[in-house]
Every structure is written in structure tokens, then in C-alpha cells.
Design a protein around this nucleic acid. Structure first.
Lengths: 181, 181
DNA sequence: GCAAATTAATGATTTATTCAAG
DNA sequence: CTTGAATAAATCATTAATTTGC
């Protein structure tokens, strides 16, 4: 019954919620005394040390900024692209960015509306791809190709034994007592 | 009389029942092969693609958790208000209660890797020390000593006056108007 | 009753976070 | 510190419920 023994702080949902709420409210750089207070409160919900709180705010702030910078850069680029300032040979250098840029609402469906009734042949471009644990899904227009790559039996979440031999469709008698949750 | 031609999957009642039943039995994160099987079976009841199954489980799990979180947040607030915990200092002997709270739905396995209780504690030596803009933190095992050195008044985020007297747990009137989404 | 208008659910996509390997 | 993989969270978009005025 020895507890998991993690080498690092594992925030409980409560702790996380509280931290996020504080951050949202504008506390991005708590001083020592604030950290102490916060730690005290959070310790009610689970083991926690001051340093964890300290780190959390540092990391969170850093990632927030990073996010912001990225967004800004993309917006700028967007402007440039739209204005045609990168018309000539610079264009391909943007690929790394544009892929992100154009992702917002340029889905295949929007670019190649199905309503067209087949006038458009084959949007041949990969609009998006979604990687899953063991499959890759690629969207070509409306279609999706799922490539099964592997099923890892060791994957931790398979610890639920029932899943191992999961009967997908027992579907016995119709009265399965479907209780609403 | 072409069929309605929906742009998205509309689950039939049978499909929905099956999915819900699978979920209820503990299948919350099917792998690709499971998705394939499920899709195959469900296709008996109507047009369906693997991605729909994939999405369904993702959404269902997420919204399940969302509900739980909301409930939890509410309870949390209640606890704080009712017990006046927010004026405590370190109060560690609440473990039983804490456990109950924080394990009510420990959700992500990354929060609780081994499915056990919480995170164990206590490297016993001086771990490290960090210099922050306004404090030095020294870690002695579990303890952290923070010495306030200075508070930089120029730091941009300090413009928010509320921070000066930061109320960690404001918990004002019960009717905080928890606006949905 | 019945549609147009509104709102709620939920399918589909995108973005962010987390863990850990390199 | 950086990166990749997995997945959770947030968001967008469309369909279903429902409300509303006739």
C-alpha cells in the first residue's frame, strides 16, 4: 500500500483550480509571503511545498508570455501575408508559421464546401492531422484516414482489467437498464 | 429526395446506447483497434466513421469531467465558507477529509500516476535555492525558507492594486454569479 | 399547431498541458 | 532545455430542443 511516491509535486484538482484562479485574478508574481500563504491553504488538499507554488507561478507566467508572443508574431505575419508583403521568394520560409496561422478556421470543409457537389476534385492537401496514442488520423477534406499503428498492451491506462477482455458488444437482453447519470 | 446530408454524424439511439454502455463500463479511452471494432458494430445501425467514435469518447469524457469539476468547485467553496478554512495556517491533520475530497474523482492519470492516494513527500536534504526577483528561497527538505529581499515596484503586473492586499480566498457573497461557459 | 427565433447539446477542431526521453 | 507523444481543455459549428408570436 505504499503510496506512489512521486519525485515531484502532483497538483490535486483543487490545488490547480485555486492557483489558476489566483493567476486569473492577476497574481502572477507572488512574493514570499504570498507564497507562504498560498502554500498553507493548498496544503489542505494535499502535500505541497512552497517551492512548488513558486515554480508553478514561474512556469505559468513564462508559458503565458510565450503564448502571447507566439500569437503576436502570428498576427504580424498574418498582416504581412495578407498585404502581400511576402509575395515572392520569402513565401516558403513562412511555412512553419502559416501552418499554424491558417489553421484557425481554414478547415477543409470551409475551403472545399461539400455543397459544391463534386465540382471540386480532391482537396489533396493535408489540412490537419491528429495523432492519437496508436493511430494517426489525417483529414483530407471530409474524409479521414485512420492508420492503426500499434496497440500497446503495456500502456498504463489498461490496468483496468475489464478492459483487457472487454466485450464490446455483449448486447444481451434489451433491458440493459440505462440509468441516466 | 436526397437524404438530409448532414455535415456531421447524428448518432442513432442504438448507437448512443451502445456507446454509453461501453463508457459506463469503464471504456473511456479506446485505442485505435477498439475504435475500429466499435465503429464496425455501430455501422450496423447507421452510417458512422471511426473519427466519430473517437470524438464521441473524447467529448463524453471531457464533459463528464467538466460536470464533476463544477460540482467539486461548488463543494470546495462550501467547505471553505462553512469551515472557515481560509483563515487557517498549516492544518495537516485533515488527511481523511482531504483524501476524500481530492480523490473524489482523481481524473487524469497524470495527476495520480499510480492510482494511489496523493503524492508522497519529503526529500530530506537541502534541495536547492532559488533567487527570485524579490526573494531567496532555500529548500531544506520539506521546508522552504523565503527571505524577502525586495519588491520591485516597477514590475508591470504590480499596477493591479488589488494585489497589494490580495485576498487569497475572497469568498464573497454566495451568489458569485457563476456564469456558465 | 407551426415555423421563425432562441437556446441548449453535442459533434468536430484547434490549442494547451503534461510527462519524459534525448 | 528541447522535443515528441498522448491527451485534456477550449473553442467552433451544427443540429436538437425549446420558446414565442401568430
Amino acid at each position: 500500500m505504499s503510496p506512489p511516491k512521486s519525485s515531484r509535486w502532483c497538483p490535486t484538482p483543487e490545488q490547480l483550480m485555486i492557483l489558476q484562479e489566483l493567476y486569473r485574478r492577476g497574481l502572477t508574481n507572488p512574493n514570499a509571503s504570498q507564497i507562504q500563504k498560498i502554500t498553507a491553504h493548498l496544503s489542505f488538499y494535499g502535500q505541497i511545498q512552497g517551492k512548488s507554488v513558486f515554480y508553478w507561478f514561474q512556469n505559468h507566467k513564462a508559458r503565458d508570455r510565450q503564448k502571447l508572443r507566439k500569437k503576436l508574431a502570428h498576427q504580424l505575419l498574418q498582416q504581412h501575408v495578407l498585404l502581400g508583403l511576402y509575395q515572392h521568394n520569402h513565401q516558403h520560409n513562412l511555412s512553419g508559421f502559416t501552418h499554424h496561422l491558417s489553421s484557425s478556421r481554414c478547415t477543409a470543409r470551409n475551403l472545399y464546401p461539400q455543397g459544391g457537389g463534386g465540382c471540386e476534385e480532391a482537396p489533396a492537401v493535408v489540412m490537419n492531422h491528429h495523432r492519437s496514442k496508436d493511430c494517426v488520423m489525417r483529414m483530407y477534406g471530409d474524409d479521414v484516414t485512420m492508420m492503426i499503428m500499434d496497440v500497446d498492451p503495456n500502456f498504463p491506462c489498461c490496468r483496468n482489467k475489464r478492459l483487457e477482455t472487454l466485450e464490446l458488444f455483449p448486447l444481451r437482453s434489451p433491458a440493459v437498464k440505462d440509468q441516466e447519470r
